[in-house]
Design a protein around this nucleic acid. Structure first.
Lengths: 201, 201, 201, 201
DNA sequence: TATGAATGAGCATTCATTCAT
DNA sequence: GATGAATGAATGCTCATTCAT
């Protein structure tokens, strides 16, 4: 019976979070009401509180889900065999980010932007975001060092700084993509490649 | 008397917005109450409504003020004579961003992050943010083209893509700076320089 | 099977009421939730509803149990042979009240105080409390009359009024004991004896 | 302007408390909703919260008002010149208690019974009740000692114990009066006088 | 009998905005 | 222009009770 119950529990939490993602993508954390989530999840008020402590708890879970996805994508990438140029890794990560299955990819990105804002005022969300950001940077730095070992990147480059820049390019891509809607991973990373290629030709 | 009245009006609006910046930096747009702003501005409830239509009006003004600052900094930079490498322009812009006088620079950056989130749900804020983002990218593209003309950047690079990447690096800097607190403009842009320098040395 | 079933039923009811007494002593009738009682009784929600119609039913049973105890103590006392002075009967009753076995005596007294309040708003609880109060007074009046017959109390005294006063002294003892915690039956009844003894000595 | 504002404030608080007394007398502390009080006070929800921190704050103020009245009555009595027999003082106090002007006397007594119950679970109400109870007992003990000095009460009586008993008679009077409705101060105190008068006549 | 997930009406409280002074 | 008491719809959350298993 624990099996069924645990599965049930996880499924219900997911049902609620998926509904909340859609609401928050539309209205942001604070304009989304519990009534919105309850209606979207097609549950009763009491049921939602059986699976989450309250609205804050849902917000934190959403922050984790949205911010975690980015780091997750890169970690999965880094674990695959061939060493690649960091630019290529960035491009692959951005492409992966836009193709989330099951859930509308855009919705999760929108929730992520909300999470950035919330990290500045809620200690728990801040903890989630800073942890994931650090993990992202750490993974990226490893990637850069492996590229340096293969001669794909100059040995003089500081891997940590390069990782910070590469990670830093991600929010800017998401933002421009969501606000202006005119960027593809390829064109964006080509901008980096253009700057990288030697001048004077 | 229009002179005095107009000055008075502008001063009052600024007093209210400065107060609102401090509140929003602390609690975000939606957890900041009008009562918070009114108290922080040391005014009466009625007074605030003489200068702003309502809370949304204040939010829009804050979005403009915070997002506008970034573009403003770069435009001012581009208007100065010598042509510089885009990386140097980016570094100078980030440094300028951290040294806002009068208002705590961090507070305005925090309000900016809130504005990104709000742009996804409020049409008016979206208009402000997208306009400023486009202006930023346009200015940056000009800068890149001038650098190409001087041989500082490869002629094969696509100026628009490079501008998108360079602009995209800014939100990531702000976010890492506010959340992790461990980045300087110099180290961040060095990350870009490291990737740019030819490998194999 | 009726035997076993009936015993089982009584045992379950008692298990639930005992749990409810502990909860209500802590939090009062209305801040005690059914969930509290269910947890304290170590049963399931459904089980409790097999033995009680609902929360009101439990409240009424608790009122009966707590208020009934006082009258029960005095009735038991009156049935014993020797005729005593009413003051001595009061003292013995108060002592008996503080020494309830099995259940913490204080808990039941606390529930009693809750029942006084509930009697003012719930007709069923009012019926219980007024019945028990009347029974208490009736028993006490009998006691006074028997003491008068033995010359222990002035024949001119009105037995009904004396009974009302003696019964009326009980809530005040309970209240001062629970709130101030500094009264013993002996010292309290000595207060009465002091007033009774002729002045001028 | 402070004068007007302060008076206004006190008047509004009183308006709300008077409404709350009527509600609580009917339904008890916890079955009285804020909506009940708001409706009875003929105010808006927001207005009530301008004068009280919340429901708990109102409950505490009601406890103070109801319990304080009893002690207040006795203190006022003790300050008058002639020394009286404690029984007479008790009777006068009970009579005063039943004749509160402006507010229905019964309503305030009912709120008092609620306050006894609340004192057992809310620390703030407990503090109010225990303070007032102590003040009541202190005043009564003074009264007894003055009666002893005048030879109205035996010198051998312990004033503190007698005071405890006399104070203890008050809740019992209130309770029997509210629940059974058949007691007058005179008949009740006559019960005490009957016990006091020497037997054997 | 027994379970415990689900229900949904009801509650205390907040807050953007107004308007009589 | 300036004030701040007043408004009341809206919000997050609770809890007595039911019922499919």
């Amino acid at each position: 019976m624990p099996r069924v119950t645990e599965q049930h529990r996880a499924a219900r939490r997911d049902q609620i979070l998926a509904a909340a993602v859609r609401c928050v993508a539309r209205e942001g954390f604070h304009k989304t009401t519990m009534a919105d989530v309850i209606r979207e999840a097609d549950l009763s008020a009491g049921a939602v509180y059986l699976y989450f402590r309250g609205k804050d708890d849902i917000i934190r879970a959403l922050a984790e889900r949205s911010i975690g996805r980015v780091a997750h994508v890169l970690v999965a990438m880094q674990e695959q065999q061939p060493v690649v140029r960091p630019e290529d890794a960035l491009q692959a990560a951005l492409e992966e980010l836009l193709s989330t299955a099951g859930e509308a990819a855009d919705d999760l990105l929108r929730v992520g932007v909300q999470a950035w804002g919330e990290a500045l005022r809620d200690e728990a969300v801040h903890a989630t975001v800073s942890t994931q950001l650090r993990r992202l940077r750490h993974t990226m730095a490893d990637l850069v060092r492996r590229a340096q070992a293969e001669g794909l990147v100059s040995k003089q480059a500081d891997a940590e700084s390069a990782a910070a820049l590469l990670c830093g390019a991600i929010p800017g891509f998401i933002l421009q993509r969501l606000v202006l809607g005119d960027l593809t991973p390829a064109s964006y990373v080509d901008g980096l490649r253009g700057l990288v290629s030697p001048a004077g030709r």
